[in-house]
Design a protein around this nucleic acid. Structure first.
Lengths: 346, 346
DNA sequence: CTCCAAAATAATAGCGCTGCTATCTAGCCG
DNA sequence: CGGCTAGATAGCAGCGCTATTATTTTGGAG
């Protein structure tokens, strides 16, 4: 048949492509591509006419095409338990700011403290051929580890340090936090200690703080320490509730550390209602240094984890690895430490 | 010449592709692709052998290739002022949960309250050919609007409702919040009203609440209302500071509304220190119903914005639009309302 | 049995960009 | 001034998948 088959009606995208830009700038697509990837390799004259063409056409690059061709994208995937949690929100925000400077995008995933979901999130993340993957904590399923190893994507584990890491890590030792809280209370002359924790069965890091707390306390002669917990997520209400239980079970308690500041604030509120003097009769130490902690009455002694620093350093490690891959893995484990802020409640 | 040029040594990805799966399942790549996109169109026998092949090869699809071919991705981009802000963190989390059910991924961008940055974020977002874009608030630059219009990507504006929306919107009217706070205080017999606000110059929504507050109050005979503000981000410390200024400038104030609960908590703390009885001498109303608001002492009367509902509904609108595009735009503007929670502080 | 529509599967032609190479140009030395 | 080299620019061949069309297989009806 002379008549050619009707041409395929593939959606003929009217999208502006790199070729349109090249045509307008009277250069080849290669050069335009180079302009984006290695601006220095393009002459000033070419750069200028390309910039003009981009401007005129309002060109928006297609990062998916670029990622496909380059077999890797400018996306960093991060998996956190929850952004509802101020700690991780802080880290996510700081990290994004840092990554943004290098025009790296962030894709976010939540486990909502269900560790089992992590594998699925990692799978999805890998579908985007990310430049790096950031995971919270150190405990990951075998399948997750294998996926990541096979993919060869750089991995950063954040918010927790331990004996072994998959690749890179930024965080601190949670047992040391417990240790610091216990030491501080003991130093303040407290002998009957309690750790009040929310959701310790799911929040492993909080559990490690609790463990570090009692281990430290019990090593010191004449000191007692127990853990009281509640399965619900941390909130001031849970804190108030936990204090009630604490006073019921251990009436002579005089030093309390909390899994976080929400719990501690609840303890303070409840003590106000019950007429319990803080710190005279009871010392309270929190964890988190949340927005209200310095302003409460009494102000709250607490341990401040450097959430923003963690985000920033994680971003830096990633940038160092993927952008300046020339040098060798300088430092791949960063201990950010934490700070005990001694205020009125202890 | 006879000798063929040496074959290009293109990085021969050892990645498992859809072709490997097809080969192993003894089917064509097309069928495997169909299996992912329209599982019902594939026979049970084929489905099973494909599933087995995927399992055996540990196949991870390349979403960038898919997105490129389909000219659209399963990514939803969301731009919020900051995830450090609990309101938006809540929305982001809820939205992600809802989107996740449809295997839609979320890409996050922050403006950090710099509206000027929005355009860049939208540009980057569009580079990923997202299935939809979610923006916070209603005020966007002309360039941003044009970019979005040209791209034809569905847009959802959240957390604010007003006279006109670009496409879809989910939120509530902030002036109504101010109105509700003022009405409530008046109803509680308060006549000398103040609105304490943080960062009103950047946080337009808070500014609208303030505006609604004074407009309502001033319409009522015998009532006075003023706004006092501080340029720093909201925190309990700023709240305490603002109360100081308030008492200095308006010693007989007896009703205070705050731009959010952090400020209100600071007011409560400061009143405790100063020995000002709440609510006897001073009524306080917050905004946000943050984690500590119900537990504080006195508990805080506040207005609760449905952050999670906003996220959920926004996700639903998006899903309805892109997945079941058959039906016509049912409802594209959703007023989620808000709730005044009357507690002890008023 | 044959025929035919419906169901299932396969073939084809890109999506828009990048990573090599190859080619071209300008600058500089002897 | 020819010959070289480094610096710019261009050409080519996919990246891994999807949408569309084409083909084959099924399963009844006649």
């Amino acid at each position: 048949m002379a008549a050619p088959k009707p041409t395929r009606t593939r959606r003929k995208m009217q999208r502006v492509t790199i070729m349109d830009v090249a045509a307008r700038a009277e250069l080849s697509p290669s050069t335009v591509s180079l302009y984006f990837r290695k601006p220095d390799a393009v002459s000033a004259a070419a750069s200028e006419s390309i910039a003009r063409a981009i401007e005129a056409l309002d060109y928006v690059p297609n990062l998916m095409a670029g990622g496909l061709a380059a077999a890797s994208s400018r996306v960093v995937s991060i998996v956190v338990p929850s952004v509802r949690n101020a700690f991780f929100a802080e880290t996510v925000a700081a990290m994004q700011e840092e990554l943004g400077k290098q025009r790296l995008q962030m894709m976010l995933g939540h486990t909502e403290y269900k560790e089992h979901d992590e594998e699925g999130l990692v799978r999805t993340a890998l579908s985007w051929a990310p430049a790096a993957i950031v995971l919270t904590g150190l405990s990951h399923s075998v399948a997750t580890r294998r996926l990541l190893r096979d993919s060869k994507v750089p991995v950063v584990e954040i918010w927790e340090l331990g004996s072994q890491t998959m690749d890179m890590a930024v965080g601190f030792h949670h047992d040391q936090v417990g240790h610091a809280a216990a030491s501080h209370l003991v130093q303040r002359g407290r002998k009957r200690l309690l750790f009040l924790g929310a959701r310790l069965h799911e929040d492993r890091r909080a559990a490690r703080r609790a463990q570090g707390f009692v281990e430290t306390a019990r090593k010191i002669p004449d000191i007692t320490a127990e853990i009281i917990q509640h399965p619900a997520p941390a909130s001031a209400e849970v804190g108030a509730m936990l204090l009630g239980e604490a006073l019921h079970r251990f009436p002579n308690v005089n030093g309390i550390a909390c899994s976080n500041d929400h719990i501690a604030l609840g303890v303070i509120f409840e003590c106000q209602r019950l007429g319990i003097a803080i710190p005279d009769r009871l010392s309270v130490v929190g964890f988190g240094d949340l927005s209200f902690s310095a302003a409460s009455n009494p102000s709250l002694t607490t341990i401040r984890p450097p959430g923003d620093l963690i985000g920033k350093e994680a971003a830096r490690l990633i940038i160092a690895r993927i952008l300046h891959s020339d040098g060798e893995p300088a430092q791949t484990v960063i201990d950010t430490r934490f700070t005990l802020l001694h205020r009125q409640s202890s």
